[in-house]
Design a protein around this nucleic acid. Structure first.
Lengths: 333, 333
DNA sequence: ATGAAAGCGCTAACAT
DNA sequence: ATGTTAGCGCTTTCAT
């Protein structure tokens, strides 16, 4: 169809017998092009299958019309969020790019990724579970989901982690459990701290002392949760229940329990946090605290679009409620 | 920290007292830089927080080190694939970008997206459920997942749709069902055609005639499946079982059944296809044919990386097996 | 209404 | 070992 190799604006111009400048005007819908030329150029564009280069365009115009979602890794949590963003983006006219630098262990990945893409690929970004976010990085609008620290200068969206954790703990308590372990999340994430605080607050309120040796770091990832879970469940004085900081570590905990010959929930009750779809796939299906993941993604997108339109989101920090989903991994002592 | 606005290579050069060319060499690890200058430049880069611009770089070098996954939309199917790709990319050194043009209804979105990103953002691409793929589009290596048509010139990965559909149908048959409906997928996708063919073959083999009015197009999306499902279940001679071409339409069928006062599986058996995590979340949990989604994603990535290394994938069309997952939506007549 | 020309930030010869 | 120069494909004044 076309001379092998990318069709560029110059090809269109030559074919249409006009200058690149004119083609650019047509492509961008600028004024100052006659109907005849317009039609002619459009025809050639269609014929040649011309499609502008994102990179080259943004290099000049600093506008790409694409919104980026920056994640450390594509796992259940971030992909759920992505579904929400994708649904919400609907007819805003923006396109969506999800980027993973693939450095789940490098602190500052979000900054690197942001600067990398800003001003060359994306116009604005939603960063997921960033450990540090400097509002001015990259100079583009940014909304953070489930960020590292409390109120900061960039708008944020997250769930009510503290209340959710309190509910989870009270539920276990109501089932008669007292030796409750907490497999905590990434210590550098505010959500993890809030969940641990919720756990401790609920325990204190119930007058149950927390056995510090039962509070271990699981790190939110299945791999990082494996060893601490194994250690916890191998002890002679093992807990009768564990509240894991997220579903992924809860599910891994169940697998470890299984490998140790412990039945869930008969020998051990487990409750997670997030309610990613995978939690329903576990055997038995995991009882968990649901975060409205898609709504969080959708909300972040709406705030971002408002910012792109020059508005200041209000409120600039939104917290969405959690709910408990009872499935089959908890039972009375 | 830095003069507000993007830190560019020229800034680093000025600060370090060298030329941009030298900085470029440092950044790209080229030879011809003294230890002293190297250290100096690296220091300035760190100080200023310099991060190269993807767009500008690729404009020149035609290499970005990022692999793109092009999807029409971020829904359960594509995000599962994405998880598989993400896991497999591990330490290949490539970064991952998932792009959604957001045109699930525009034929040719994959071509547009591909050309748009190729040579400016990505080095190679995995396109998901493309309706048309011209191998030479964009001039970069491409692997198609679950493509529109049979063997073509681009390498492909998909599941054994025909066998899976045969299993689903035989299962329903073994449960005593005879009036079995098929809510088919997108007619322009080969996977949809193979599933329908599997359905028809199994019926024929069992000597059961298919009632053509019971074979309707569901289109793979919940929204597009709603009306046909409602029509199917509202009829006086409604089917006793439906084999939906994918989980999303199966789940929507269950919702429609529920709204019509029909209990699943008591009044209607339903079986899906894909086994996306959401299928386990349905009430009751959906019986379905599982595709190894993550493995498909991982395989596509491996083929692509091989291609980037100059190899020709062999085989160039891989089919992965399906398995049945019995949950709670089917019962004997 | 159209085109010529000057870059955007970067890399890659080619000098020095 | 380092700098100079010429673009990559595009948008944008500024002429014409």
């Amino acid at each position: 169809m076309q001379p092998l190799g990318r069709v560029k604006m110059a090809d269109v111009a030559r074919e249409a017998g006009v200058s690149v400048a004119t083609v650019s005007k047509v492509v961008n819908g600028r004024y100052g092009v006659s109907q005849a030329t317009l039609a002619k150029v459009m025809g050639v564009i269609a014929d040649l299958g011309y499609e502008g280069s994102l990179g080259a365009r943004s290099l000049r115009s600093l506008r790409t019309n694409v919104i980026g979602v920056l994640v450390a890794e594509f796992e259940p949590f971030s992909t759920e969020l992505l579904k929400g963003v994708s649904e919400a983006i609907g007819d805003t006219g923006y396109e969506l790019i999800a980027y993973s630098g693939g450095h789940h262990d490098i602190v500052g990945w979000e900054r690197r990724s942001l600067v990398r893409l800003a001003g060359s690929v994306i116009d604005a970004a939603i960063v997921v579970t960033p450990t540090i976010v400097d509002a001015s990085v990259g100079g583009i609008p940014v909304v953070a989901v489930d960020p590292h620290t409390g109120p900061l200068d960039v708008p944020t969206v997250d769930a009510d982690n503290h209340t959710g954790a309190v509910h989870a703990t009270e539920y276990l308590l109501s089932l008669g459990h007292r030796r409750i372990a907490h497999l905590s999340g990434r210590p550098d994430l505010e959500s993890a701290r809030q969940r641990e605080r919720g756990f401790r607050d609920a325990m204190a309120r119930a007058g149950v002392e927390v056995d510090e040796s039962l509070v271990v770091v699981g790190g939110f990832r299945a791999e990082s949760a494996e060893a601490p879970a194994r250690e916890l469940l191998s002890r002679p004085d093992r807990p009768t229940a564990v509240f894991a900081a997220n579903d992924l570590s809860a599910i891994r905990t169940m697998e470890v329990a299984h490998s140790l010959g412990l039945a869930v929930p008969a020998d051990l009750s487990v409750i997670g946090f997030d309610n990613v779809p995978e939690s329903a796939l576990a055997t038995p299906p995991l009882t968990t605290i649901a975060q409205p993941l898609k709504a969080i993604g959708a909300t972040a997108l709406q705030m971002l679009v408002a910012m792109l339109d020059g508005a200041t989101p209000d409120p600039s920090h939104v917290h969405l409620p959690t709910t408990m989903v009872e499935r089959a991994t908890c039972q009375a002592l």
